[in-house]
């Protein structure tokens, strides 16, 4: 579903990403872990074109993203319709109700009628358990509710891929459990998902595959049992030891 080859992203002298290559099959949940500054958010943002990489190539579904493509906003917009993103701080639109947040993109970017998009919003908000809250404004919601609204908003574009940047950072363990449910259900429905997290137990529960990103490089990848119990790479071991203690 996603194939990245030697993706490199430079911020001046800083290497955000350094020759990152990986391949993700459809319906798989991939978890990105690594120390702060390792390049996890940068990689996620490259996957939906919010960040433009400097070298390498990327393929998502049938979309080929090239280095020179940055100027073509239309092409990027089409790519982004296939890739939903849930931001760490959710970035809900504060001037719109929850329902309007969800409806906006399908109506404008997918060309749905008002009736269709409203029905879609009802359906999605029901799935994330926010039916009661659809006329509320984002600031009237708790952190967990905001996050579920953000997920519903991203799903409204019917993407093939969902990206999450540290989705559990604002949640207690009960809410983390709920999120796990939602994401598992999506996976069962065939959604390809990429998750950045610092929450190792969350990662263990969810991941089909784990990528360890350190200093912009994928130092190790594999199934969670392997990475978390018997990491092969010295740097991964170091990271996990420091992280778990």
């Amino acid at each position: 579903m996603i194939t990245a080859e030697r993706l490199t992203k430079n911020y001046g002298k800083v290497r955000g990403l350094d020759q990152v290559s990986f391949s993700i099959p459809p319906a798989q949940v991939t978890v990105l872990i690594g120390p702060s500054g390792g390049g996890k958010s940068t990689l996620l943002r490259c996957l939906n074109g919010l960040e433009l990489f400097d070298e390498g190539s990327l393929r998502i579904g049938e979309y080929e993203v090239t280095v020179g493509q940055g100027r073509s906003q239309g092409g990027l917009a089409r790519l982004r319709r296939e890739v939903g993103m849930v931001f760490q701080s959710f970035n809900l639109f504060p001037h719109l109700t929850v329902e309007a947040n969800v409806e906006l993109a399908p109506r404008i970017a997918r060309g749905l009628t008002e009736a269709e998009s409203t029905a879609l919003a009802h359906d999605l908000l029901g799935k994330v358990g926010l039916s009661e809250r659809r006329d509320h404004y984002p600031h009237q919601l708790s952190g967990g509710q905001q996050q579920r609204a953000a997920i519903a908003r991203a799903l409204a574009m019917a993407p093939q891929v969902m990206l999450y940047d540290e989705p559990t950072s604002a949640l207690d363990s009960a809410l983390t459990g709920e999120l796990l449910q939602i994401m598992r259900r999506l996976a069962e429905d065939g959604m390809t998902q990429v998750v950045v997290t610092h929450d190792i137990s969350f990662a263990r529960e969810l991941a089909d595959e784990v990528l360890v990103l350190i200093e912009g490089r994928v130092v190790e990848s594999g199934p969670p049992e392997e990475i978390f119990t018997a990491p092969r790479d010295q740097r991964t071991r170091e990271f996990l030891r420091r992280y778990l203690s």
């Binding site: 939906n48 074109g49 919010l50 906003q73 239309g74 990027l76 917009a77 089409r78 982004r80 319709r81 890739v83 939903g84 993103m85 931001f87 701080s89 970035n91 809900l92 639109f93 906006l104 993109a105 404008i108 970017a109 997918r110 908003r153 991203a154 574009m157």
Partner: peptide
């Protein structure tokens, strides 16, 4: 983040400005 969220939803830059 507002502009980015709108772009991430597949809105064009113009639509993101206009609606968000």
């Amino acid at each position: 983040g507002q502009m980015e969220a709108a772009l991430a939803l597949g809105l064009t830059r113009y639509q993101a400005l206009r609606y968000v």
